[in-house]
């Protein structure tokens, strides 16, 4: 097994000379230009109109970045408008303005809803409030834990993932260096 200077396994490094051999082998079988084939290609063209469409112009990186920034600005504005609309629709004119912003109005003498949940766990709070038909945070957390365990077990069962674990990320990411 080959290793790098740090002694780590490097299994995805391009073997020395591979590119050269592959290029040489391909060059040995490179065909010659064929006027006959060229003629056959051209004979079909004039009878067939070019399909309608527009060639997209080449864009510089600056143009692409500018377009990206433009879209981000539009999305941010849309999100702001959406938030304002949702707030406005949800507003109940019969209630004092401040109470709309709090899930439970806290008045003198009342127990704070938050402290109740913290003390008893949300399952108990949900039962007390009569909303036991709705999944609690405990249920959701258990579900997420189960899902993660299942996913991990599944990945370990897939041979290709086991194979992927055989090589290191640094060598893998270096695979796109220009030949």
């Amino acid at each position: 097994m080959q290793g790098d200077a740090m002694g780590r396994r490097v299994t995805c490094r391009e073997p020395d000379g591979l590119a050269e051999v592959l290029r040489r082998e391909a060059a040995g079988e490179r065909p010659m230009f064929s006027e006959a084939l060229h003629g056959r290609i051209l004979r079909r063209l004039p009878a067939t109109p070019v399909a309608a469409g527009v060639i997209q112009p080449a864009e510089s990186r600056g143009q692409q970045a500018g377009r990206s920034a433009w879209w981000q600005a539009i999305l941010a504005a849309a999100a702001t408008v959406l938030a304002v609309v949702v707030t406005a629709i949800d507003w109940d004119e019969s209630e004092p303005a401040g109470s709309q912003l709090l899930p439970v109005a806290i008045e003198a003498g009342d127990r704070a809803a938050g402290s109740e949940v913290a003390a008893q766990g949300d399952a108990a709070a949900a039962a007390e409030l009569g909303i036991d038909g709705v999944p609690t945070f405990d249920d959701l957390e258990a579900g997420v834990r189960e899902g993660v365990s299942t996913l991990a077990a599944t990945l370990l069962d897939v041979p290709e993932w086991r194979m992927l674990a055989d090589f290191d990320a640094a060598g893998f990411l270096g695979a796109d260096q220009a030949p």
Binding site: T48, V50, A51, G53, Q56
Partner: peptide, 10 residues
């Protein structure tokens, strides 16, 4: 040839 207008010159 038929679809050359769809070519993306990037």
């Amino acid at each position: 040839w038929r679809h050359i207008a769809d070519y993306d010159s990037r």
